[in-house]
Design a protein around this nucleic acid. Structure first.
Lengths: 117, 117
DNA sequence: CGGCATCCTTCTGGATACTG
DNA sequence: CAGTATCCAGAAGGATGCCG
């Protein structure tokens, strides 16, 4: 006896869950930034800026703040001259790793499809 | 010896691949719509409209058109009175199934985290 | 170096009404 | 039923310059 309730609700729940996930990962850049942080467990602001093609510093700043608020990333200010800042994924953020890498795989395949046309 | 080429480029490629994927799946609704089509292999316009919480007919129409252009979904007009239209995922669209379901899982977990706070 | 402030343009997307 | 058309507000996001 897994579910007594109307099975349609199960589907709706799934769709809502997907929306919940995407609400966190919204915007044009968030997933790319996470991808950057996946590959380098510590990464500085300017490094991410060069990792993610086309992003502006303003957007990067804003998106990183969002990720921090949602506990996906952690910001650490290093006491250097001039100042440097390190970003890392939290354990929670790391839980997205699988999804990110599958998206990367899909994207790679998709690029082949596009080029093939 | 796994990689002879500059390793930085490998990472950049991965990030670009993720961006490629997200370019297709952009907008607020696309992933939810695909999720809806994942659960019901045939689904009508008005059904999707009620599946995806909060979407307007205008947006649904536009997003479905995008999905069709990108060969992720297929549109079939049925000869009924009044007219009905069926949408299905293409094989290509179905290749996103794993990602969608993982996003749903992550979203479900995330909801627990939010409620827990 | 790692941002923030400002300006400005484009895009997103909601509400409503209409059509075949 | 499955859209289209129009209007419009607000958000997203680029360019540039400034600051500690």
């Amino acid at each position: 006896m897994e579910e007594i309730k109307c099975p349609n609700n199960e589907n709706k729940m799934q769709i809502m869950a997907v929306q919940d996930a995407m609400d966190i990962l919204n915007g044009k850049w968030k997933i790319s930034i996470i991808a950057s942080l996946c590959h380098h467990n510590k990464r500085r602001f300017s490094d991410i800026l060069s990792d993610v093609n086309g992003i502006s510093n303003k957007m990067l700043s804003k998106e990183l703040k969002d990720l921090e608020i949602n506990k996906l990333a952690k910001r650490t200010v290093l006491d250097t001259h001039p100042i440097t800042v390190e970003y890392t994924l939290t354990e929670y953020g790391l839980s997205l790793q699988t999804i990110i890498s599958q998206l990367a795989n899909w994207g790679t395949e998709h690029r082949k499809v596009i080029i093939g046309e």
